[in-house]
Design a binder for these strands. Sequence first.
DNA 1: CGATGAAATTGGTCCGACAATCTGATGATT
DNA 2: AATCATCAGATTGTCGGACCAATTTCATCG
Lengths: 274, 274
Amino acid sequence: MSTTNAKSHSGNGSRFDLDPPREPVSAERSPYQAITVSRSYEQVVRQIAALIRTGQLRSGERLPTERELGSAFGVSRGVVREAVKVLGALGLVEARQGSGIYVLHDIPTVTRAFTLSVSPDAESVERLFEFRRTLEVEAAALAARRRTEAQLAEIVAASEATARAVELGDLEAFGAFDNVFHGAVARASGNPYFEVAVATARQMQQDVVPFISDRIGSVRSAILHHQNITAAIGARDPEAAARAMAEHIVYTSGAVTARLPEETPIEAGVGGGA
Amino acid sequence: MSTTNAKSHSGNGSRFDLDPPREPVSAERSPYQAITVSRSYEQVVRQIAALIRTGQLRSGERLPTERELGSAFGVSRGVVREAVKVLGALGLVEARQGSGIYVLHDIPTVTRAFTLSVSPDAESVERLFEFRRTLEVEAAALAARRRTEAQLAEIVAASEATARAVELGDLEAFGAFDNVFHGAVARASGNPYFEVAVATARQMQQDVVPFISDRIGSVRSAILHHQNITAAIGARDPEAAARAMAEHIVYTSGAVTARLPEETPIEAGVGGGA
DNA sequence: CGATGAAATTGGTCCGACAATCTGATGATT
DNA sequence: AATCATCAGATTGTCGGACCAATTTCATCG
């Protein structure tokens, strides 16, 4: 029991203390509930993930060094490294050799973990757009039903930001605000699973196809779509929101895939079933 | 450069050899492409994940010990442990102290990683059903369009297996075959992203609500739903498949949430904006 | 034959050391 | 003055060994 003694360490580590062993006090519906001995690295993952989710660790910020985290949590450096690997698989942090550990996003996207497991070569981009369309269309409809005023304000602001970026011809800024816009719509759905899934799908696509909107023409129509989506969500019209989002993604899909090398048109019966 | 020399090790390690450093030979569209140094643990993850995905390592099978994997890959035990952590976050394997490392699923589900990062307490089950419904309804429609004969045979077999399990009153078997059925439908969609997302959502739900179908009445109607879904996919009727799947999930959702403690009815405006 | 307990196996954790890489400062060169 | 080369420090990446904790295996005993 040397792993959980909260030794009063030195330095700045006020935010990094390992909780007491926290036995499962939740409602136990039946006896013989599956006991789960919490590994040390899991508690480290929980705490750092909570700090990121609650905004106490911002995107881009650097974490303490592995050794400092180890002494702060009262665990060895190896445990910290294992926790960092899991956090990296969730897309929350990134470790750079010689530099440190940095926060990437504030909501988990399992992109990197998937690219390690699914396959190194590019899957068909068509499938990814199909997936995104399903998720984002429904998210837009839900957002039209449930959005709060604050969430609508976020969507409006992001939509205007994309328009401004296009006016300035800054395609990189457009891409960033485009992500903000779609993320805000997904968040306004009130369903965290949609939010995570949409962020994951978009991140995955940008890993595979990093050269999305290199033509100013396609982004011009994108800002019109954004305005339509925003208006429908503002009017609390789910059908219109779904229609506008579907139109947006289908159009974007066409613009992107037209610029791709000739591959896998659509072809029924994928999956190599024996 | 001691990490990548494929030393001719001893023992059984014919399937576990570290690939040569594999520089990115893909199409480079612009100069100054971002270089990515592949860490040792990533290559271990790739190889083991590939073995699981291709079926060379079956579900339930035990991997070699960490020490054996280390000598087989030519890396230290610490690297193997970091790789196992990532594979565990993907839901592919599970390490049991004193016993070994076992394969859990053959397709990645990020359940465990999410439960570490999102929150330990149970989210609203309603949101999870909403997410599942969106995914599985579209997957059923896609399956009706693209399914192969072999995939249809899988779906039919799984549907009949659930019916047989209900006849025998074996609810546990019903749950297992129910997972097989929905997984087969998702796979028949021809879109691997749907397959992974559906499996993840279902696994997540079963982690949160492990006591789903404890009433024989609700599962009886479930097998009727399965037959309707199967028939629609067999007839290549996307609309009917989507309708049948929606009815199935909405019904199941009602049956489950009715048995839940009074919590969070639906309530618009979640997410704590501002 | 079943129960018991010791021994072996295996993952979990800790520690120390070195290598590879990045960062920033310093100084030399143009 | 600006640019480049070099160096020292810091930090992650990897290695090897050691010990602990949980599990499994198996000989022993009742």
